[in-house]
């Protein structure tokens, strides 16, 4: 519940303040957002499963974002940045779909 409210507060803050991302973070921001969304969906699924642990959520969130950013950085250094970014988005997308399916089963029993 806290998380949902916090997310809404963050969106409103972003809309109101209209912050500009610093240049160095710009290549990583989209991937980091997708990674964080993956963590959020995972947390939501765990909560519905009844085994949500805030500590696991925090660790998975931070590590997801960091690893995603690292992969993009590594890809850029190796010259395959675009392909690796696509790979990360695909993998995270699959995970998000999996989590969403589990959440759907909980909510609609189907």
């Amino acid at each position: 519940m806290i998380a949902v409210i916090a997310l809404a507060v963050g969106i409103v803050l972003g809309l109101v303040l209209d912050p500009t991302a610093p240049d160095w973070i710009q290549p990583y921001l989209p991937i980091a957002v997708v990674a964080a969304l993956d963590a959020v969906f995972g947390g939501l699924r765990a909560r519905l499963d009844g085994n949500f642990d805030p500590r696991v959520f925090v660790v998975s969130f931070v590590s997801n974002v960091l690893i995603a950013a690292l992969i993009v950085l590594l890809g850029d250094e190796l010259g395959v940045g675009a392909q690796l970014s696509t790979a990360v988005v695909v993998v995270l997308g699959i995970r998000i779909f999996g989590n969403a399916a589990a959440i759907r089963r909980h909510l609609f029993k189907a």
């Binding site: 998380a3 997310l7 957002v33 964080a36 969304l37 925090v58």
Partner: peptide, 22 residues
Amino acid sequence: VNALVAVLCVLLGVALVTQVRR
């Protein structure tokens, strides 16, 4: 830990909006 969860979610919201805007 709960506070951290809230902070991370706020950050995610801000980042989401920033990226969409950009």
